[in-house]
Design a protein around this nucleic acid. Sequence first.
DNA 1: GGGCGATGTGTACGATCGTACGCAGAGTGG
DNA 2: CCACTCTGCGTACGATCGTACACATCGCCC
Lengths: 181, 181
Amino acid sequence: MTVRRHDPDRRDRIIDACLDLIAEVGVAGVSHRKVAALADVPLGSMTYHFAGMDELLREAFGRFSRSVSDGFEQRMSEATDVETARDAVVAIITEDVFDTQRDLVLTHELYTLAAREPAFRELTNAWMAQSRAALERHFDPVTARMLDALIEGLTIHRALDTEAPRRETVTEAVRRITAGV
Amino acid sequence: MTVRRHDPDRRDRIIDACLDLIAEVGVAGVSHRKVAALADVPLGSMTYHFAGMDELLREAFGRFSRSVSDGFEQRMSEATDVETARDAVVAIITEDVFDTQRDLVLTHELYTLAAREPAFRELTNAWMAQSRAALERHFDPVTARMLDALIEGLTIHRALDTEAPRRETVTEAVRRITAGV
DNA sequence: GGGCGATGTGTACGATCGTACGCAGAGTGG
DNA sequence: CCACTCTGCGTACGATCGTACACATCGCCC
């Protein structure tokens, strides 16, 4: 018998493996068996630690969204005034968010689930609320909302369009949205 | 034998059924059998008309994205000057695009596929190119690009956030982005 | 040391999947 | 009216899936 008992990180490892797998083959291609193999845990551990696929997905995307929005908040908290806040936003769009293919894919997988199931929409709600709050450190609430949407749109178009918007276009867009302040 | 021979719309019906099914259960939940049942065609027709699931998905999302971006172009072509073009954009964001849950889900499913597979990115590229072209009827290329991203972001946040941005917020955001013209 | 909860896992079952392929039946030229 | 072609479909196969559950093993208490 593989003496794997008492492995306190197992649950975490499963969640991480699940995220990696989703990034690679999509939610559509994830199965208990594949996750178990990748996390190097027996199949039985899946049903032991998680009631079902849904619970696993919710936990996985919860961890993911929290990690991304924490990074976002971190970036914004480093800004000291409106000017550096604008720079931070540009940096987030052009460098941070979807630097890795992995994050891009995971974000869209989450959005897709959220579009169909309210349970996942709680995650996106929390994510967006945190982003807005971080932006409101430097901008008024209405501007923060617009800016949040702009970040979303520019980020997606950067990722899914062959000709990505140039950096100065991003800078100019941020300037225009925050101009009225 | 069910005398179904010579049914020229069959291929189309399969594609439509596939889209309906994706909207309901996601790409993850789609199977040849379910599509066949929904389209009311025999299972054998699936492999006869489509080489595999990938081909079916590509055709389905091709039809979908073309239909959405045609609607977009239609809306924009009705505008006669910059002012009515702005109104059209606001209308698109607050009324058109994700009026139905169906379109919202399908869009995100497509984005998700595009994030992972280049074959689907051709579809999103064409879609975005057409949107930009439609916007360039009324705005300069750089503004069109920003506006396109803003539409994307506001639309998504409208759909995935509990507290959707109010209409006047949308109007104001569009005004700010197009202000420098 | 020995028994006993608690913890974790191997395995097997029924369902569902994609795909291939032999063949039925419609259309057509003689 | 026959025969031949070719379009289209029923069906079966092997793989893979989620899940349940009997059972092995560990830590602990007496």
